[in-house]
Write a protein that binds this DNA or RNA. Structure first.
Lengths: 301, 301
DNA sequence: AATGATTATGTACATTTTGGAGATAAAAAC
DNA sequence: GTTTTTATCTCCAAAATGTACATAATCATT
């Protein structure tokens, strides 16, 4: 039996001077009100009311008890209201982490309209390229780019993220443009050490899978930095599309082996496996899924 | 499921950062703690903790919720303490009613030592010879002298109270001393109108029951007043023993038909049929039973 | 990297509690 | 004196409870 309900019944009887009226007020049967109050009296081993079938009067213990119950019930009601209000308004903190490169570019661009629309959300974003333990760090959400999301957390795939091969025009002029995947072995390759198999490039060409074990001259865990190196003519970079798409469009980088298929990663939102995801977190994830969606899908112009 | 227990479990987990440690502290199994917290989260439709099998962290809603739960639990614990302390100390009010005559004499005499022994008891005594509705008047105890106690209330018999016949020596000198019950018809009789059959005197003499329907010249509902009238020589009074015992001892009144048996009333303590009688009320009733006990039993010197 | 210990939780189930229905007793109104 | 209303008792079908067993995950140890 819920003790709060028994106290609530007691207070209602005290206010109405009637079990029947109290029952009407609480939406309970008179029998149940009687049972609740009796249960309370048994638990306290004291009498809260003196009563006949037609009259009810508080005992002096009952009077003292009532005085203390009222504020407690008010506070309990406020407890419930607190939670309900927090849920209904998209307000409060969201703490998220993302890889540096993606976070400072595409992710931030996507967040701006969302935060404009929901000004009460307080974003705390931590950009890092090292692996973060979400729960221990007190984080709500992690954006990850990869192939295998963390198995503890729930992963919602936001979009595809193909890895593309590219180099600067200057580099290609100097070193020649590879005509097939095997030709890559003769080139300087820039490898993204964020990937599990950074030096193993899998490339599908004309229906055939090429597994190239390259001796990457340069490795870096920051895709943006790798792009910058490629811009500087240091080699052929295998980078996630988001990091180089602007350079490709501007002609500053050129695609290498454009007819080949490379690895396609995913952009994932990772969050704890809670059964009650806050509404603002859900709203953000939905927003990002909408923003990223098909943006980097392979095969699109 | 008791919501207070679920809140208590939640608070304990928050403090210990561990379901297992919280369970140890509360004397509950880890499974039950888990169940309680989950129940609370379901009821609130929000997540209070983020957790893995090895780490627990409050959500921000959980932090706000915790801050408000702590004082509520303290107040609920105080609620329980309040009642327990009131029970353990013989303190607080006792409101009782009694017939005027008995209340101002024998009852008051009996109360003095009890109140001296229990100075924290606050007595409110209402002396009246009219019938009092205990519960409606907010009274705890009624002392009644009669034969049939009120059937709604619980009656605890404290002692016998015989009705005695007596008159002043002057009256008896003037009007003669009755030799048998039937002779009373020729006398002025003073009847106590508190009795249901004030004018029907039942007297047992030599094994025979005499039912006398007297035309009482004087009726009064105050035994003390009747005694005073008897002292003034106005007739033969049938009074409860307590009201005349001092006069009899001093010779101011003499017994009439002393070898006969008259009605024997009872002194009763009446109180509401509550299952939890306060300790101080019980203590008072026990004390009065001890004081009055055999004091007015028929046949004693 | 594999293994063991510990923690949190899911599922099943015997037991206990719950809340309603019917009945009873008492008190007040008529 | 009778009727109506109120408070409560008892019984019981349904629901909830709390434990036991098992599972999965995480961290420490080897």
């Amino acid at each position: 039996m819920d003790r709060i309900e028994t106290i609530r019944a007691f207070v209602a009887v005290a206010q109405e001077n009637s079990f029947t009226a109290a029952g009407r007020r609480l939406g309970l049967s008179t029998k149940l009100v009687s049972k609740y109050v009796r249960h309370l009296e048994q638990r306290l081993e004291t009498q809260l009311f003196n009563r006949t079938t037609r009259s009810v009067a508080l005992t002096d213990v009952g009077i003292s008890y009532l005085e203390r119950c009222r504020p407690i019930l008010d506070q309990i009601d406020d407890l419930d209201s607190l939670v309900r209000e927090r849920q209904s308004a998209l307000a409060g903190p969201i703490r998220l982490t993302a890889p540096t490169g993606f976070g400072s570019t595409r992710l931030t661009e996507a967040l701006v309209p969302f935060l404009q629309e929901h000004p009460q959300i307080e974003l705390a974003m931590k950009l890092t390229d090292t692996r973060v333990a979400l729960i221990e760090e007190g984080l709500d959400l992690a954006i990850r780019i990869g192939s295998l999301p963390d198995s503890t957390l729930i992963a919602r795939k936001l979009s595809d993220m193909p890895m593309v091969l590219c180099a600067s025009p200057d580099y290609l002029e100097r070193r020649g443009r590879p005509e097939d995947p095997e030709a890559l072995a003769a080139h300087s390759c820039l490898a993204d050490s964020n990937q599990p198999e950074q030096n193993v490039w899998r490339i599908r060409s004309q229906g055939k899978e090429h597994v190239l074990k390259l001796d990457a001259a340069i490795q870096c865990n920051a895709p943006g930095a790798l792009a910058t190196m490629a811009l500087g003519g240091l080699g052929i970079a295998r980078s996630p599309l988001y990091a180089v798409e602007n350079h490709l469009e501007a002609g500053r980088l050129e695609p290498v082996l454009p007819d080949c298929e490379t690895t396609v990663l995913g952009v994932y939102a990772l969050y704890p496996p809670n059964r009650h995801l806050s509404r603002r977190l859900r709203a953000l994830i939905d927003h990002l899924a909408g923003e990223f969606g098909m943006r980097w899908s392979p095969g699109l112009p």
